[in-house]
Write a protein that binds this DNA or RNA. Structure first.
Length: 115
DNA sequence: CGCGTGACTCAGG
DNA sequence: TCCTGAGCCACGC
C-alpha cells in the first residue's frame, strides 16, 4: 500500500471525497481513516470547509458518524442546500437532516481502500 | 512563523 | 439516556 504523508493528507481527503459514489454518503471519520489518520475527523471538516468550494468537492456526501448533516448552517444555508443535493442523487434525507448510513453509507470498499 | 479554532469522535459521569 | 470534557492535528490569520 501507499505510505501516508501528512503533507498529503489534504490531498487524500480531496481524492477520497471525489471517490464517493453518487447516491452514497460517508463520514468524516471514514475519510480520516482512509486518509491515514483515524482521529483526524475534525481536520477533514476543516479541510472541506476551506477547500470544498475551491476544489468544487461533493462535500454534500460527507456527514458525521450519526448520519447527521453536521455542517454549520449559520453562515449560509449549506445544510438546506446539502439536503437538496443529496435528494437529487437519490439519497433520502429526513426532515431532521439525517441520512440512513445503513443504506447509503460508503466506506471506500469499491475504491479498494478497505481501511 | 506561532496561536487559536473547528463541517468530529469517543469515553466518562 | 443525556450532557460534558478531552483528544485529534491541519488550516488560516
Amino acid at each position: 500500500m501507499k505510505p501516508i504523508d501528512d503533507r498529503n493528507f489534504k490531498e487524500k481527503v480531496i481524492e477520497i471525497t471525489f471517490s464517493i459514489p453518487k447516491g452514497r454518503v460517508t463520514t468524516y471519520g471514514t475519510i480520516a481513516t482512509l486518509a491515514g489518520i483515524p482521529r483526524a475527523a475534525r481536520i477533514v471538516g476543516g479541510i472541506l470547509n476551506s477547500s470544498s468550494v475551491r476544489y468544487n468537492l461533493p462535500w454534500q456526501r460527507v456527514l458525521n458518524k450519526d448520519g447527521y448533516l453536521s455542517i454549520k448552517n449559520g453562515l449560509i444555508d449549506s445544510k438546506k442546500l446539502q439536503k437538496e443535493l443529496l435528494e437529487q442523487e437519490g439519497v433520502e434525507v429526513s426532515a431532521e437532516y439525517v441520512v440512513d448510513l445503513n443504506r447509503f453509507g460508503w466506506y471506500g470498499e469499491e475504491k479498494g481502500y478497505e481501511r
